[in-house]
Structures are given as C-alpha cells and as structure tokens.
Design a protein around this nucleic acid. Structure first.
Lengths: 199, 199
DNA sequence: CTGCTAAGTGAACTGAAGTTGCGTTAATCT
DNA sequence: AGATTAACGCAACTTCAGTTCACTTAGCAG
C-alpha cells in the first residue's frame, strides 16, 4: 500500500484541491473541510495525515519545490545574475506558486516544519546557483576565493525583502541593478569567504 | 472621554497585556480572552475596539514603530551603512520587539492593514536614512544622482531576507560585508536613480 | 449637581474547527 | 485465494473563538 496505491491517489487529490481552494478563496477562506469535500475525501483523512492546513501546504510546497530551474549561462557573471534575478521576480509573480509560497513564508515564522522546508528550498537553490560563480571565477570575472553561496544570496535578497518585508513593487529592472552591484562586488573581491563572512 | 480617560487606560492595559502574553506563550498560544483577562477588561471590549488579535498587534506596532532611531555619522558612507546594518541586526535580535515584528510580517502577507503599517514603517526609516547618502554624495563618496532610498533599501535587504525568507543565521559581521558592497556600488554610480531603477 | 452619551461588562449563545470510535475498503504477503 | 493490515469513511461529539444583548459605569456638558 506504500507506493502507487490509494495513499498516493488521496494525496494527489487533496493537494490538487488545496491549490484550487487557495486560488479560489485565499488562505483565510480555506478550510480543511472544504478541501476534503473538493477532493472527495473524508476530512478525518486530511486531519490524520497532515494535522493542519499549514502542514498540508508545507507538504505540497516541499514536493513541488524540488524542481530544478535551468541555470542561465549568458557568458558573463552579470548576465547570469540578471537572469537569476528575473527568474526570482517571475516566480514571485506567478499567482498559484506565489499563493503557496506566501503561506510557507508565513508559517515559517513560527512553525519549525515550514521553516526547514523553506530553508532547504533556498539551500538547494543556492547550491545549484554556485556553478555560475565558479564559472565567473574561472573566467576571472570574480575574485579568487569568492563565496558562491554569498553571491547567490545577495542577488536574491532585494526581491524577497521587497515582496515580503517592505512591500514595495517588484520591477524586473530591479534585477539589472542588483546584478550590476553584486557582479562588481564579486569582481572586487568583496565577497570572498572568510573575513566578515558568517559561517 | 477622548483624551486621557478610560479609553486611553484601556488601550494601555490591553497593549501591555498583549506584549506580555506574546512573550509568555507566543502568538499561537495567545488568545483575546486571555489578554482581556490579563488586562482586567472584558473580552467584548477588545473585540469591539480591535476586532482580531492580528489587528491588535498591528495597532501596537504602529504606535511603537514611530520611534526615531538616531542616525549614525561615522564620517564615511561605508561606516554609516555598517552602523545602520548593525542596528537592524540588533533590532531583529531583541526578543520582545522581534515577537511583535514577526506577527506584523506574517499578517502583512495577507492583511492590508498590517501591510500598510509595515510599508509605512520602512518608508519612514528609508526617508530618515536618506541623509546618510546625501552627506556621502556631498563628500564625493557616492556618485552624483545616487538614489538615497535605493541605497538604504539595499543595505537592509540581506538581513531581512535571512531572518524571514532563507532562515539563515544573522551574524553582525554580515553588516560589514553588506556595507562594503553597497558603498562600492554607490561610489561607482550603480545606484543612481533612473535607468534600471523601479519607480 | 443633573442628565447625556460613549465605552465597558457579563453571561448566554452560536457555529465551525478539530477529535474520537468503530466499521469498511483496498493494497500486500504467502 | 485467503489472510493481514494500513488507510479511509462516517457520524456523533467536544471545545472554544467570536457574537449578541441587555445592563452598568465613567467622563463630560450645561
């Protein structure tokens, strides 16, 4: 009963109903009872398997988030960082993805399960993006010893800060400026690991 | 009855009880009923004046957040930005302030009242910090036409992104590196308003 | 001092989220 | 195929946040 049986069908049905409900009535209006009804499942089932709405969302996110985004390779560090930034902005603008992401960010503030799902999501993205920086170092566009993780983190920070903290608009042009700033810093050796670098 | 009468006393008592409860049992464990009890007030009163726990927190935040933080003036842009960053990190580490801030950030994701409270809070901080950049331009440390708001925003982004999005640790040393990166970018004219600058 | 009104009180009520117990279905093992 | 067991369904129940309403108190005006 573990692999592709009833369990998997139920999970798929519930997850689909969840996303549909989130889009229809928003997180505030979403209830487990309605999701269960929509998925053609008893609410007991949902409560037993997930326990709460938040955990259900986190679970759905953790499943989806693994999708690898193809890394840009424009030939220059600044170009790659710009593409990376545009991808982040585009992601934050996809309604159905954003809805789920919003919930995870909210829950992560006080729920350890959501926190680790989100942290792992970014850890994977950062690890994935490191190749960009390594190529740049090889080309001499970034100083020897530049910390790849720190570069990728710095590139993403402005978008997320705007979207979730200051609440300011997300303009794709922001990616241009951010890429220029970080590429310059990397070239000048301001992002080498070690001094002034946490961890 | 408007000024310093019963109304004001009630508000003060409830606000104090709110913060105490948040610190004692966390947001998840906090209920309006307990706050009312602790404040020596009927829960009806709280429901009528604030309507929900979230709005109560937002109200408390909006009242407190006006406090002006003294601007650093170290004599150099990088030094000022570093101090600014350290202040942000320190703020995010004060438990009772952080508790309230966490709730506002959470609520801002789906509640317009919390969203505008938070956005206004940062707008004030950014406006306040602009003087640092203007001094730097006057000293020739930043390019003519550098957008003060953008500099301040960029300096803050990494801390908030770490605290609320990626969930990575907040090391005061992060302020050093961030200040160096942004100061360099400002000097090189990468943060002038106009091209590539949203709004 | 007397009356007026905004604000607060307390208790009863409502409704829906979440739980429990037991019977049923469906995948897996031999 | 029959036995086994994990997962699901259903209906009743519990619990508590949030509402309602009739009544009381405190500040203010004339």
């Amino acid at each position: 009963m573990r692999p592709g049986g009833r369990t998997a069908r139920t999970k798929a049905a519930v997850t689909e109903a969840l996303v549909a409900e989130l889009l229809d009535v928003g997180y505030a209006g979403t209830t487990i009872e309605r999701i269960a009804q929509r998925a053609g499942v008893a609410k007991t089932t949902v409560y037993r398997r997930w326990g709460s709405l938040a955990q259900l969302v986190v679970d759905a996110f953790a499943d989806t988030a693994g999708a690898q985004v193809p890394l840009p390779d424009t030939g220059s560090l600044e170009g790659d960082l710009r593409e990376l930034g545009r991808a982040s902005i585009a992601m934050l603008r996809m309604p159905q993805l954003r809805t789920v992401f919003d919930v995870v960010v909210r829950e992560a503030i006080h729920d350890p399960a959501a926190r680790s799902a989100l942290t792992e999501f970014f850890a994977a993205r950062i690890a994935n993006g490191a190749a960009i920086v390594e190529r740049a170092v090889a080309r001499g566009e970034a100083a020897e010893g530049t910390d790849p993780a720190e570069v990728i983190r710095m590139v993403g920070a402005p978008y997320y800060a705007r979207a979730y903290i200051t609440g300011e608009p997300l303009d794709p042009a922001l990616a241009d400026r951010t890429a220029a700033v970080i590429a310059l810093a990397a070239r000048q050796g301001l992002l080498v690991s070690g001094r002034g670098t946490p961890r």
